[in-house]
Nucleic acid binder design. Structure first.
Length: 861
RNA sequence: GCGGGCGUGGCGUAAUGGUAGCCGCAACGGACUUAAAAUCCGUUUUUCGAAAGGAAGUGCCGGUUCGAGUCCGGCCGCCCGCACCA
């Protein structure tokens, strides 16, 4: 009986409505049940969803549906990371208000996500640009201020000249703005900072506890935090005439053992000492300007040579009365790290060596392999670990190992009161001020009398004005005629609002907590958060390994400190999925061509319309510029959401990049039809129970083993493997269905396998599963059906095929009962003709038996 | 430069130190069909052989082991992250 084709166009909207009407996926506020919180990184509403979203949200959805079937109270929410520059760019380029643009995009993308059939609790949806969301962000900021988590200070900032705003260090990539790509400049500005550095040690140490995070991400965070142990100590300074100066020079070093190899000191061009001396030294002033102009960016790219300018002052060596080290301003010393000043030891540091070489400074080797003359003419000796490296030319340190010498120097400095042991971090405080309109207003007022005054919580939110113009660069809030003029909340005299808005990474640093109580009057309902958090499974792109994930970890701690949460780590388990990639084509002229316009003909690729021969590009991340984007809407319309979801989960492991191919999509589509045929055939069979009689037993074994394997795979996010098991099960069912005569228990086994198949595929292809489930005669929805229980007796095997090796080479195999007696097995194997022939007259030295696996006969050669 | 990851059929991939290549795609052969599509069955690592049956094989070289795709060392190649952090 030929079944009709499965029609996704009717079925998918039907079941989506069913789930909505039945509120199938609204999380229950029943805190007595075991919970499972699965979250995918929420999208920026850029316009339309792309295949990367489809992959990301499909994975999360499979987990949500699977955990739900396993009996968990599942929270799987969705929202919008809705503040940001693209909305302002749309306003500038197309005259659309950022708010209109954003909410229109949200509407489109919400519709698209819903067409995927995601098991999301839409009742918890919010956008970070909703005043009802950012109101709480402002309230928490005020709490952070009171708790000492916020500082305002003038500092050198990274200025993006295109976006006309400040960037955090994390947002500067290769010296360029992470979004605009413009070369970043240095500027001095008063900025708001969150004191993430206070948590550096904690954020680093707690990484060890995040055992189910990818090792790679933990390592990236570790390197980013960049802990180093060393010493800060102070040199006495004197001028060219030998006159002692009032101020000393404090430096940071991790190699205080090499103090006797010091031949110069260097400070950053922005160091107060250099700044002060430049007032009377035009050459120095010129040098400072030069360095500032270059910024950090060009240098990185060019690997610029080390350059410096003498300050005309000298540092007295702390242990050698007669040695005076010239002090330079140098372009390779960073003001933002340590003290912004170093002592140079050219013999044991590449940068110092380069610098010394250029300016003909002494290069004194002070560490070397034991009993070997050290030469540093070709470059510095950098080895510092192990007992083989010892100090030389270093007075009281001679003969000590590097760690011993460090200890000795540290003691002497500490005793003399010249210095102390210091731990330094690469991590900087998080600058959060942005000179933009489309962000959360920073809730403070600047009063000429009272200074900085937080806006009282009763007056929150400080709402963005709608009437803004984007007719000139800079911050529209600052240009607004009236918005910033307010009375001081303290003294009521005329004052001005802060016109900077928050870095949008703040918005995404706590949204996962807001999802636990999205309508609460406080930022987060602590009881709800206590139940739902941490997120059990967080899924997103590895591009957020540092920024978003580190900020969120810090934010949780800050919220903990201010009583908004009671846990420090927001994400118990993290998974970073790969990208969606697609083939690319170019014309001879270098113009990108849509892959759908490329035709393979007679061994070459030609353009479908022009006939022009095309160059095959790489398989690359989908991007508009390369024209290799595939629109999810088109795919869902033609193939259906289930097919698209299935494709995203098949074949490629989730952490790797997946290549979108037409052939693969066709394959997935064919499989949906195959399932439909199988289930139709089964539905036509008479009713029967699965028994332990022999006819259906083989199929029952496959079914139960498949479920066991799929359960294990889904628990470990191995979607591709679980899909391979579903194929196996369906293949076994096709074979069984083709038998001409089916005994009762075979029919029972087929019916059971049919149920298993539908439940197992339901997390991946939920619409088809619902349709099949009804066809099999069930009343309840498959989303309300529990994951199958397997029968141990059907999973265990009673016979095993054991491979027989001779000297480690597979030669034959033997079928024996499970847990076969070792002696018996050995005897049987040694009596086999094929084995006897191979052994010949040689002596059997040993027989290794791995139960139910291998017999390895070791014979003398 | 520093740190990390990955190299398996034509392709995507699978394999608690224990029979390498499950499953899928593509390809080829066959069945059904007036024909095509769809579907179903079969073959498909390479090589020698008519077959039976051999031999080789997880980037390269070596090591540990009864046994290595898997563990260790050294290369080669590709990918990613950080990058003047003293």
């Amino acid at each position: 009986m030929a079944a009709e084709r499965y029609n996704h166009r009717e079925t998918e909207p039907k079941w989506q409505s069913y789930w909505t009407d039945n509120r199938s996926f609204e999380a229950k506020e029943d805190y007595s049940k075991p919970k499972y919180y699965v979250l995918e990184m929420f999208p920026y509403p850029s316009g339309r969803i792309h295949m990367g979203h489809v992959r990301n949200y499909t994975m999360g959805d499979v987990i949500a549906r699977f955990r739900r079937a396993c009996g968990f109270n599942v929270l799987h929410p969705m929202g919008w990371d809705a503040f940001g520059m693209p909305a302002e760019n749309a306003a500038i380029e197309r005259g659309i208000h950022p708010k209109t643009w954003t909410y229109e995009n949200i509407a489109t993308m919400r519709r698209q996500l819903k067409s995927m059939g995601l098991a999301i609790d839409w009742s918890r949806e919010f956008a970070t640009c909703d005043p009802s969301y950012y109101k709480h962000e402002q309230a928490m900021f005020i709490d952070f201020m009171k708790a000492g988590l916020v500082e305002r200070r003038v500092s050198m900032v990274n200025w993006d000249p295109v976006d006309q705003t400040v960037l955090a260090n994390e947002q500067v990539i290769d010296g360029k703005g992470w979004r605009s790509g413009a070369v970043v400049e240095k500027r001095e500005l008063a900025q708001w900072f969150l004191t993430i550095t206070d948590y550096a040690e904690d954020l680093l140490g707690a990484l060890d506890g995040l055992t189910t995070w990818p090792e790679k991400v933990r390592l990236m965070q570790k390197n980013w935090i960049g802990r180093s142990e060393g010493m800060t100590f102070t040199f006495e300074l004197e001028d060219a005439k030998g006159q002692k100066l009032d101020e000393g020079l404090t430096v940071y070093t991790t190699r205080h053992d090499t103090i006797f190899g010091a031949s110069f000191c260097a400070v950053s061009a922005d160091h107060p000492l250099a700044k002060g001396l430049s007032k009377t030294n035009p050459t120095l002033e010129g040098f400072r300007k030069e360095v500032a102009a270059l910024g950090t960016s060009e240098e990185n790219i060019e690997r610029a040579e080390k350059r410096g300018c003498p300050l005309g002052v000298f540092a007295r060596h702390p242990f050698l009365k007669n040695v005076k080290l010239p002090v330079y301003a140098a372009n390779f010393v960073l003001m933002g790290y340590g003290e912004g000043a170093i002592f140079g030891c050219p013999g044991h540091d590449q940068r110092d060596w380069d610098f010394a070489h250029k300016y003909h400074l002494p290069i004194i080797p002070v560490v070397g392999p034991r009993d070997v003359e050290v030469s540093v003419s070709e470059g510095p000796y950098l080895e510092k670990d192990g007992v083989e490296s010892v100090l030389v030319n270093s007075e009281f340190l001679d003969g000590l190992t590097v760690p011993q010498a460090k200890e000795e120097v540290a003691k002497r400095f500490e005793m003399a009161g010249l210095g102390k042991r210091t731990v330094n971090f690469r991590l900087r405080d998080w600058g959060v001020s942005r000179q933009r309109y489309w962000g959360c207003p920073i809730p403070v007022v600047h009063c000429p009398d009272c200074g900085i005054v937080p806006v009282p919580k009763s007056e929150l939110p400080v709402q963005l004005p709608d009437d803004v113009k984007f007719d000139r660069p800079g911050n529209p809030l600052a240009h607004h005629a009236t918005w910033k003029h307010v009375a001081c909340p303290n003294c009521n005299t005329p004052a001005t609002r802060e016109t900077d808005t928050f870095d949008t990474f703040i918005d995404s640093s706590w949204y996962f907590a807001r999802f636990t109580s999205p309508h609460d009057e406080s930022p987060v309902n602590v009881e709800a958060a206590k139940y739902w958090l941490p997120v059990d499974q967080y899924i997103g792109g590895v591009e957020h390994a540092i920024l978003h994930l580190l900020y969120s970890r810090f934010y949780s701690r800050a919220m903990h400190k201010t009583g908004h949460l009671n846990a420090d780590e927001p994400f118990a388990s993290l998974f970073t999925q790969g990208m969606v990639i697609h083939e690319t084509f170019k014309t001879e002229a270098g113009e990108w061509v849509l892959p759908s316009d490329a035709i393979h003909k007679d061994g070459v690729w030609i353009h479908a319309n022009t006939g022009e021969q095309l160059i095959v590009g790489g398989v690359e991340k989908m991007s508009k510029s390369k024209r290799n984007v595939v629109d999810p809407d088109t795919i869902i319309a033609s193939y259906g959401a289930d097919t698209a979801r299935w494709f995203m989960l098949s074949d490629t492991p989730p952490e790797r990049d997946i290549e979108w191919t037409e052939a693969g999509a066709d394959g997935s589509w064919k499989f949906t039809q195959k399932i439909w045929r199988i289930i139709n055939d089964i539905a036509e069979l008479p009713k029967a129970e699965a028994t332990m009689e022999v006819d259906g037993l083989a199929l029952r074994r496959v079914a139960h083993r498949s479920i066991a394997a799929i359960t294990d795979d889904l628990n470990n996010l191995r979607f591709n493997r679980s899909i391979a098991r579903i194929y196996e099960l369906s293949n076994a069912m096709v074979s069984a269905l083709q038998l001409p005569n089916k005994p009762q228990d075979m029919i029972g086994a087929l019916r059971e396998a049919g149920n298993f198949l539908v439940i197992a595929m339901a997390p991946m292809m939920p619409h088809l599963a619902e349709e099949c489930w009804r066809l099999l005669g069930h009343r309840a929805s498959v989303v309300d059906t529990a994951w199958p229980q397997t029968i141990a007796a059907l999973i265990e095997v009673d016979e095993v095929t054991i491979a027989i090796q001779v000297n480690g080479k597979r030669r034959d195999e033997i079928l024996v009962s499970k847990d076969c007696d070792r002696g018996l097995l050995e005897t049987r194997v040694l009596e086999m003709d094929s084995i006897k022939r191979l052994i010949g007259g040689k002596t059997v030295k040993k027989v290794i038996i791995v139960p139910d696996r291998i017999v390895n006969i070791v014979v003398a050669e």
